[in-house]
Nucleic acid binder design. Structure first.
Lengths: 232, 232
DNA sequence: CTTTATCATATCGTATACGATTATTCTTGC
DNA sequence: GCAAGAATAATCGTATACGATATGATAAAG
């Protein structure tokens, strides 16, 4: 299996690492050694390096020069920025989706929410979280525009790291009603209401996080010890 | 100067090639040989390759396996998709910008339009085109959100290639009124009007292009038979 | 016993070298 | 004379090798 003969393509390796990060198999801050990854996939560093850089472009990996690559640990400020970006971008998306939505799209979205609910009932937080992201991606797909879908996908994946870092222990079911509400507004064809609901939904998600905590002390000592005011 | 001692960073090389493409110094379809670029920047292929892949991720370069990298030559379908994406994304952007715009922002936008007009009067099409893109980027910057700015920047750069390929010879001054109109709507604080104007402005830009023609074919043939004759 | 300086190790970043694939050119047959 | 096939040249993709830099340990000084 993982012994010898694997002509694994770059995209496959990328996708493998990408999923491992977004699905939480790799925790924020974890080191991603080039040689280690090369051994895992049976290739040399030469092919790993560009992939890590690509992941760094997607902001789910951080490369510290001469130190190595690590799973990104988004700062509180970055978390807020990504969420704000989603509020701006996805407002346009849901408006377009509302204009274009057809019955089958509505059904698909409702199916996802149902699965999401089911996963939560089973205490399967990982799956529920994945479906939450998928909901927004499928919503973007209604536009029929691959460029838009890809951008939303990128934003959602970055948000995955944010919730992985800052989610409150017992707050996994907060955004459920939000999605159902969005679907209702879309089904009703009320563009303004849908846009409004989307902004508030995303804001709710952000408010449900435990920002301002000392969660990221280990990462950015600069901010953790900002009160010391060390003169440069 | 360009002889020996240049510790040029990867980002600098990337930015150099990026600008050369967006500003039209490198035409769509042009080959980007790894060894050639390496010689130009005084480094080895090893550092060029990841940069080309990064440009490929940004969709302004195409990498054909075992063939090499070329400046992207977006198809008509891709051109339409990118424009449609801009209509969706930038609607959200201009709505946010309208909510947040302050007098200094309005002045900045007007300055850009003025420069744009000036460049057009001087028949400086290249500069005018660059300022057109900058207008949309600055508009995105009003949101104060780097993620949003970067996304708009990416879309605008892709559109640069589209107009480089499909722009009608004598249609360089079509979108001027559009920008001024957008500013008026923003200054008036009328979010819906601004969003509407943005969609139509981008649609106008698209309509002003010469799609559906055989521009793609003739360009390809032109380069293929460049050594034979000049039909121009 | 703490602190600082030095050394060893491990990992990253880059250049070079080699095999694989494609484009081009030349030859040969029709 | 033209077309098809083979050999050559050029370029891409990958692995290996080497130099540079940061981390951790060890030893010496206070």
């Amino acid at each position: 299996m993982t012994s010898k003969t694997e002509p694994m393509t770059d995209d496959e390796i990328h996708h493998e690492i990408f999923d491992a990060i977004v699905e939480g198999r790799l925790s924020p801050g974890e080191k991603l050694g080039q040689d280690d990854l090369g051994k895992v996939f049976g290739v040399s560093k030469t092919r790993i390096r560009p992939i890590l850089h690509r992941l760094a472009d997607q902001k789910i990996v951080v490369i510290e020069p001469m130190r190595g690559a690590f799973v990104a640990r988004p700062s509180v400020e970055e978390a807020r920025t990504v969420n704000a970006a989603r509020q701006i971008i996805e407002e346009g998306v849901i408006r377009a989706a509302t204009r274009l939505a057809q019955p089958r799209h509505i059904r698909m979205l409702r199916d996802i929410v149902a699965e999401e609910q089911s996963a939560r009932d089973r205490r399967n937080g990982a799956r529920a979280h994945r479906l939450t992201g998928e909901f927004h991606c499928e919503l973007a797909r209604i536009t029929g525009n691959d460029v838009v879908s890809e951008m939303v996908r990128e934003l959602v994946s970055r948000d995955s790291l944010v919730v992985a870092l800052y989610q409150r222990p017992a707050s996994s079911g907060c955004s459920l009603g939000g999605h159902a509400d969005l679907i209702d507004k879309i089904a009703a064809g009320d563009e303004n209401a849908a846009a409004h609901a989307m902004r508030h939904h995303l804001q709710d998600v952000m408010d449900s996080l435990d920002l301002g905590g000392d969660r990221r002390k280990s990462q950015a000592l600069a901010t953790a010890f900002a009160h010391l005011e060390r003169p440069d």
